[in-house]
Structure formats: C-alpha cells, structure tokens
C-alpha cells in the first residue's frame, strides 16, 4: 500500500511540475493546484497510513496522528486562497497585457540611466 501511495504522490508531483513549466497562465494554475494536492498528500503521509482510526476520541482504541491532519486542513484552505489569487492575477494580466504568457520581456536598462 505504501508503495502505491508514494507512486501517486510522485506522479502528482511530476504532472504538477510539468504543467507548472508551461508558457501560459491557465496550465500553470492547474499545475499549482496539482502540486498542492501532492504536497498535502505528502504532508499527510508523515502521519503514516492507518485505516479506521480517525482521531476522534472514544471511537477506536488507537488513533491516527492528528497533527499532520490539522496542518494539512489549513493548508488546503490557504492553498485555495492562493490558487484564487493566482487565477485573478492571470485574469488581470490578460486584461492589462492582452495575452496570457507567463514570459515577460524586460525592457533593457539604458546605459548611463542609473
């Protein structure tokens, strides 16, 4: 089971990064979303994989590790806020620049104009 889980995390990371490296905003947002799935699963895994032992007192004899769960819970919500921010940034960029490239050409500094 552990091997399968680790494979899933690895695949999600790879797919996320591949999308992150695309040149347009929307695939980058998808990549970030996928990467955050991977990160959340990875963090969650630090509490190990146990079945039917939810950390609710009185429902079982031993419990899964609640600390990574608490951390991941807020990470999910914050991850959404960040995704939303990036999406809106992409929309704003499209509106202001007229395209959705992530590549920006810097105007070269003129010599002597320092």
């Amino acid at each position: 089971m552990e091997l399968l889980y680790a494979c899933c995390v690895g695949v999600l990371v790879s797919c996320g990064i591949f999308l992150l490296l695309r040149a347009r905003t929307f695939p980058v947002v998808l990549g970030l979303t996928m990467l955050s799935y991977a990160v959340n699963l990875f963090l969650f895994a630090s509490g190990r994989l146990v079945v039917n032992q939810a950390a609710v007192l009185g429902y079982s004899t031993s419990y899964s590790d609640p600390l990574p769960q608490a951390l991941v819970l807020t990470a999910i919500v914050i991850g959404f806020a960040m995704t939303a921010f990036v999406v809106i940034l992409a929309i704003r960029g499209r509106a202001d620049l007229g395209h959705d490239h992530v590549h920006m050409a810097f105007p070269k500094l003129k010599k002597g104009n320092k």
Binding site: L3, V9, G10, S14, C15, A38, S46
Partner: peptide
C-alpha cells in the same frame, strides 16, 4: 526530465517516510 526527476525524488522520500516507524508528539 525535470518534472520526472523531481517526482521520483519526492515519491522516494515519501516512500522512505512511510516505511519508517512513527515518532510523533501527537
């Protein structure tokens, strides 16, 4: 190439963590 190497590394670390005993402050 880059994506799969990072994926392999993260997946391996994840696997290494999962197969070791848990020592938690929880």
């Amino acid at each position: 190439g880059v994506a799969s190497s990072v994926g392999v590394i993260i997946g391996s670390i994840c696997y290494a963590i999962l197969t070791r005993p848990l020592n938690s402050i929880s």
